[in-house]
Design a protein around this nucleic acid. Structure first.
Lengths: 124, 124
DNA sequence: TGTTCATATGAATGATTGTTCATATATTCA
DNA sequence: TGAATATATGAACAATCATTCATATGAACA
C-alpha cells in the first residue's frame, strides 16, 4: 500500500484483529456517549408499545382525560394511567388538572415527526 | 345545548360514560388500524435497545462486517449477529456477502431521521 | 365531615427480550 | 477433502415490562 489514498477496497477484515484506524476514529467521533445512547433507547422504548402509540394517536387529535382514553381504547383506567406515567416521564405528554379530571396532551411536535417517519418506513 | 357550535368547553367528562361523538369520530378516523399500530410499535422496539442503536451509529459512518462490529462495540460476535438479524428483519439494514465476511449497511435514510428526531427530543 | 367520582400507585404475574453458550453453516485455502 | 475462519442460530437464563387487582390519594359536593 505505497500511497494510502483509498484503502477502502482492501478486505483484510477479521483475521487481523486490528480494526482499520480510520474507521475506529470515525466511529468514535460520531458515536454519542453511553449516556445519550441509553437515553435514546429509553425514548424509543416508549414508542415501542401499542397502547402508548394509541394514546399518542388520540392526543394527536385532542386533549383528553384519563377515563376518556380508557373508554376510547377499551382498556382499564389503571392500565392507561400506568402508561400515561411512562409517557409523562419521557416528556412526550403533559397534564393539567381540572376538577376531578386530569387532561393529557402532547408535549411537543417531535412526537408527531418521529411517528410520521416510522410510518413512512413501514409503508414500503 | 341549543346550537352545538362549540361543545369543547363543557366538562361532562366521565360521569356520563358516553364519549363525545365528535371526539370518537375524529379519533376513529385518525387512528391507524390495529395491524399498523402493531407494526409501528415493533419498529420502535428495534430502536429501543442500546446495542442496536450503537450498531446503527456505526453504520451511519460506514459499511462494516460482523466481526468489526463486535470488536468496535466490544461485544460477542453472537450477540451482534443476533441483533443484526433483528435489524435486518425490520429492514433497517441490508447485508452483502464478500468471501467469508458479511458486510452490513444502512437500508435507507428513515433511520437517520428517526434517530435525529429522537436526539432532538432528548436535548431539552 | 363523609360520600362519591377520577386518577394514581404498589405488588404480583405472565410474557417478552438480550445475552451467553454450544453448535451449525458457509467460504476459503492447503 | 480437511482445516481454519466468519457468521448464523437454537436453547436457556436473567432481566424487563404491560397488565391486573387492590387500594390510596385528591377533588367536589351534600
Amino acid at each position: 500500500m505505497p500511497n494510502g489514498i483509498s484503502t477502502q477496497t482492501e478486505i483484510e477484515c477479521c483475521d487481523t484483529h486490528e480494526i482499520h484506524r480510520d474507521l475506529l476514529q470515525k466511529v468514535n467521533a460520531a458515536m454519542p456517549d453511553e449516556e445519550e445512547i441509553s437515553d435514546l433507547s429509553d425514548l424509543f422504548k416508549v414508542f415501542g408499545d401499542s397502547t402508548r402509540l394509541k394514546i399518542l394517536f388520540v392526543l394527536f387529535e385532542e386533549e383528553v382525560c384519563v377515563c376518556d382514553l380508557a373508554e376510547l381504547l377499551n382498556m382499564t383506567q389503571s392500565a392507561i394511567s400506568h402508561q400515561l406515567k411512562v409517557l409523562k416521564q419521557s416528556k412526550l405528554v403533559g397534564s393539567r388538572r381540572e376538577g376531578k379530571s386530569v387532561f393529557y396532551s402532547l408535549a411537543d411536535d417531535h412526537v408527531r415527526s418521529i411517528i410520521a417517519q416510522g410510518r413512512e418506513h413501514i409503508e414500503e
